[in-house]
C-alpha cells in the first residue's frame, strides 16, 4: 500500500497562493464573500499561513502553505461520533460528507486547523444574463458540500481514483510518483511542492522527507503528519 505524502519546500515557496486558488477551483470551494471574510468563514483547504516575526527593521516573514496534514495518527478521526472521517489504508484522511452530522468535534480536535465547516449553503449564484454561471465550472469529480458539514483537503483523492483506473486500464501498477498529484502541487509555479509515496524508495518525497532540512508541523504532538516541510536556507 502506498503511503501518500507531500513535501513543501519553504525555501522555494513564494507565498503566491496559486495552490490555494488551484485547490479552490479543483474542489469546488465556495466563492467567498465580504460577509464570510469578516466573520472568519472563508474556506481554503490549503491556506498560506503568514508568520511575521521580529520588529522593524529586523522583520522576517514566512509563508507556510498548510493543507490537511493527513496525519498517520490523526486526532480528528478518533473523535468523530459517526465515523464520517477516517483514515484509509493509503493514509488519506477522508471526510464522508453524506454521513457527517456537523458536530465540528473533529475540527476542534485538529491541532492544525485544517478542517472547515460549511456555516451556510454555498452561494453559487444564478447569472444575471441568463447564461451559465459559476456552477458550470464545477469539477464533476468532486462533490459540492452542502450546508452543515465539515470539509477538508482530500489530497485530491478523486484524482487518485482516476489515476488508478488509468493504470489498471494500461495493465500496470500505479506509479508511486507522478501518476497522480493534487491540484496544489500541480499548480505550484516555484516547484516548491512534491507529492508521492513516502514509503517507496527513490521517490522525491521519500528522499526529501528524510533530508536534513525536513520537519513537520508540531511534531511533538505525535499526530505523525504526512506533510513535510523543508526549512529555508
Amino acid at each position: 500500500m502506498p503511503r501518500w505524502g507531500m513535501v513543501i519546500d519553504l525555501d522555494k515557496c513564494t507565498g503566491c497562493q496559486a495552490c490555494t486558488v488551484a485547490c479552490q477551483t479543483e474542489n469546488n470551494l465556495r466563492p467567498g464573500s465580504v460577509e464570510e471574510s469578516q466573520r472568519g468563514r472563508i474556506i481554503e483547504w490549503i491556506h498560506v499561513l503568514p508568520v511575521v516575526e521580529g520588529e522593524y527593521p529586523h522583520v522576517k516573514t514566512r509563508y507556510m502553505p498548510v493543507p490537511c496534514q493527513h496525519c498517520d495518527n490523526p486526532p480528528c478521526t478518533r473523535v468523530c461520533p459517526v465515523r464520517a472521517t477516517y483514515k484509509n489504508d493509503e493514509g488519506i484522511v477522508a471526510q464522508i460528507y453524506p454521513r457527517c452530522i456537523g458536530c465540528r468535534y473533529c475540527v476542534n480536535a485538529c491541532p492544525y486547523t485544517c478542517k472547515f465547516f460549511n456555516w451556510s449553503q454555498p452561494d453559487w449564484p444564478e447569472s444575471t444574463h441568463g447564461g451559465k454561471s459559476l456552477s458550470a465550472a464545477h469539477n464533476p469529480d468532486v462533490s459540492v458540500r452542502p450546508v452543515g458539514v465539515t470539509e477538508k483537503c482530500s489530497f485530491c483523492s478523486h484524482r487518485l481514483i482516476k489515476a488508478r483506473e488509468q493504470a489498471k486500464s494500461e495493465e500496470r501498477p500505479l506509479r508511486s510518483e507522478g501518476d497522480f498529484v493534487p491540484a496544489c502541487v500541480e499548480a505550484c509555479p516555484a516547484e516548491a511542492m512534491c507529492f508521492g509515496d513516502l514509503d517507496s524508495p527513490g521517490t522525491a518525497v521519500s528522499e526529501l522527507s528524510r533530508s536534513h532540512r525536513a520537519f513537520r508541523l508540531q511534531e511533538e504532538l505525535g499526530a505523525e503528519p504526512k506533510v513535510y516541510y523543508l526549512t529555508e536556507g
Binding site: C16, A18, T25, S127, S133, L134, A137, A187, P189
Partner: peptide
C-alpha cells in the same frame, strides 16, 4: 511549464461570472 499563478485558475470565474454583459 505546467504551473499557474493564482490568477490562472481564477479565470474560470471570469468566464462564468454571473454579472457579465450579455
Amino acid at each position: 511549464r505546467g504551473a499557474v499563478c493564482p490568477k490562472g485558475p481564477a479565470s474560470l470565474q471570469a468566464l462564468y461570472h454571473p454579472d457579465r454583459i450579455p
